[in-house]
Each structure stands twice: as structure tokens, then as C-alpha cells.
């Protein structure tokens, strides 16, 4: 199968005087054309670093120390900035969380969208303005002409997120990476934004990489799920098998916590983690894992198939899947 984006063994470090913090610790991930993949994880697992690494946006003290990122069959790492610029926006685009922070506060939004439209190719001013209006209309601005001169602080969070989406889709990218697109938005607005994004991506046949900590969002807007924990993918599967029979103990814990909201059940399991308790060797989840065995503290389990297309990074995959071990 040809992948649009293929990330292999990606390692990212954050360099400090005191030493290096391994932020991504061997991430393997791929997105096929037209596919929507949800990357799920709690705060601090490296989701945002991952999408920024793909676009070549990491700067010191961040450093990619190992691994490979291929887009459309070609390596992205080590490419000159000029070539990356050509890929950003047209090939791969990114929408950020906290949209207001990523808009220029002293420039009207119209000018910012026009700037993005003109970043590639040689679009004239008038044409770019027309295109900006069309983009803002597409993302649900009822009266875009009146809003072109608005500043970000005059717009709600939901509207700012729409501006960011409009900019990301300006050059019809083949892959849209959406980093927590609904963080900080009110619930009734979140769904409008997600529906909008899904409609636009599907309409153009693009792929979507949706980064979220909300399993509910991923269940309804993605075809495949990858769960991240402490800089590694611990489980990946299609949405239906994942939500029906997640195998990794961490995924199960996440699902139980999220499902508790629905069923009025007790949701917690296992002790809370202390900050920075990831071990240097072995499975990162071992200290919190209720079913760990001796080798979990010394060896990193491989991302191994449970069923075809369903991978889980646990030594007990077979036992958990067969119900011999209950998590």
C-alpha cells in the first residue's frame, strides 16, 4: 500500500544543560491517501511535537536525532528549507490549537488569509482577495466581506479556528494535520468545526491526521486510531476494532475513563502518575500498569500485531486479547 505520509522510528530530543529529554522515542506512523487517522494521547506525550516535526518546524533546543519521515515517497528530513516551504501548505497543512495565538494580532484577518493565498504561485492581489473571500465563506463566515478587516481579538475562538482552517485549506493540501482543533471551543461550536473540517477534507479527497486527547472526537471523525504514550505509539487499529477490543493496558484505561462518563460508572483505575516518572528502560507504561511482568521493566515491547492491522506494544498482547489476562 502506498502511504502519503510515513514516519519510521522517529526520535526527537529536547536538549537542556542537564541532558536530553527524549520527547519522541521511536514513533512509527503512516497515513494513506484519503484516510483519516486520529492520534490520541494525554497532554505531554509528544503529539504536537510530532506534527511539527513532520513540517520541519522544530528548532533548537528541539532536535530530530533519528528516524525517517517520507511524504509522497520522498524523504522530508534533511531537505533544504526552500523545498520544505513548497510542501507546506500545498502538500501538508497544519491547523493549530489556540488559534488566536497563531494569528497575527495586529493584522486584519483578511490580510492574513491573502498572505497565505499568495505564498505559493503568483496570484494577483485582486484574485487573492477573491480567493480569501471564497475561503472564509467556505468555513462558514456568513458575511466574509464585512469580516476581512476584523482583527483576531474581535472574533470568537470558534471563528479564529475557522480562519486557521481556511488558511490551511487555501492550497488544497493532500494532508491536513489538525492539532486539537476543538481545544478551548465550546461544545456546541466544536461539532460545527469538526463537521466543517470533515466535510472539506472528504470533499477534496485529502487525508486527515487529527491530533486529539478526546476519544469521542476520534471515534466519530476518524477511520483509524493511534494511541501515544510517553513518546511512542502503543496501539494502532481501525476505529471499530479499537473501540471494541483495545488491547494495550493503557488504551483500555483511557477507554474506561472515557466510557465512565456515559455509563455512570466508576472510571478510575491504577494509581495516578507522578510528574516525570517515565523509566529510562523498559515499557514506559510499566510503572502504572496493573498487569506488568518482570520483563516489562527491562525490555521495550515491540509494536506487534494482535490481528492483521491491529498493533499493540505489549508483551501480553495474546493473553489480553484471549481474555487470559484481564486489564
Amino acid at each position: 500500500m502506498d502511504c502519503l505520509l510515513e514516519i519510521t522510528d522517529l526520535h526527537v530530543e529536547y536538549r537542556r544543560d542537564a541532558g536530553h529529554v527524549r520527547v519522541l522515542d521511536g514513533v512509527d506512523l503512516s497515513v494513506s491517501p484519503g484516510e483519516s487517522l486520529g492520534v490520541v494521547g494525554e497532554s505531554g506525550v509528544g503529539k504536537t511535537v510530532l506534527v511539527r516535526a513532520v513540517l520541519g518546524l522544530l528548532e533548537p533546543p528541539w532536535r530530530i536525532s533519528r528516524g525517517r519521515i517520507r511524504y509522497d515517497g520522498e524523504d522530508l528530513l534533511g531537505r533544504p528549507e526552500r523545498e520544505l516551504r513548497a510542501i507546506r501548505g500545498r502538500g501538508i497543512a497544519l491547523t493549530t490549537h489556540e488559534p488566536r495565538k497563531h494569528l497575527n494580532p495586529v493584522l486584519p484577518i483578511g490580510a492574513q488569509v491573502v498572505e497565505v493565498v499568495r505564498a505559493h504561485g503568483d496570484t494577483g492581489r485582486t484574485e487573492a482577495r477573491q480567493r480569501a473571500l471564497a475561503l472564509l465563506r467556505m468555513v462558514g463566515f456568513p458575511d466574509p466581506e464585512a469580516r476581512l478587516s476584523a482583527y483576531p481579538h474581535e472574533l470568537s475562538g470558534g471563528m479564529c479556528q475557522r480562519v486557521i482552517i481556511a488558511m490551511a485549506l487555501a492550497h488544497s493540501p493532500k494532508l491536513l494535520m489538525a492539532d486539537e482543533p476543538t481545544a478551548g471551543l465550546d461544545v456546541t461550536i466544536s461539532l460545527q468545526v469538526l463537521d466543517l473540517m470533515q466535510g472539506l477534507v472528504r470533499g477534496s479527497g485529502s487525508s486527515l491526521l487529527l491530533v486529539s486527547r478526546d476519544l469521542g472526537v476520534v471515534a466519530h471523525y476518524c477511520q483509524r486510531v493511534a494511541v501515544m504514550y510517553q513518546g511512542r505509539i502503543v496501539e494502532s487499529a481501525d476505529v471499530i476494532p479499537f473501540f471494541a477490543q483495545a488491547t494495550h493496558p493503557y488504551s483500555r484505561r483511557l477507554l474506561r475513563a472515557a466510557a465512565a462518563a456515559r455509563d455512570d460508572r466508576r472510571g478510575s483505575a491504577g494509581p495516578a502518575s507522578r510528574r516525570g516518572d517515565a523509566p529510562a528502560v523498559g515499557c514506559a507504561y510499566a510503572p502504572r500498569c496493573p498487569v506488568r511482568v518482570a520483563r516489562c521493566s527491562t525490555e521495550i515491547p515491540p509494536l506487534a500485531p494482535v490481528t492483521p492491522g491491529h498493533l499493540s506494544r505489549c508483551f501480553l498482547n495474546a493473553d489480553i486479547a484471549a481474555g487470559r489476562v484481564t486489564v
Binding site: 471563528m159 456546541t188 469521542g216 471515534a219 476505529v239 477507554l255 466510557a259 462518563a261 456515559r262
Partner: peptide
């Protein structure tokens, strides 16, 4: 109703009632 139908449960089979409000607060 709108608030409740905006809750996405972690269940791809959940039947979503599409009771959505128009626009913003």
C-alpha cells in the same frame, strides 16, 4: 438537547442525534 447531542461518546456505533444549534453564542 443541543448540549447533550454535542457529547461524543467513545463509541463509533453511537447514534448521534444531530440536534445542532445555528451559529455562535
Amino acid at each position: 438537547r443541543a448540549l447533550l447531542s454535542s457529547v461524543l461518546y467513545p463509541d463509533p456505533a453511537q447514534q448521534r442525534s444531530r440536534f445542532l444549534l445555528v451559529g455562535e453564542i
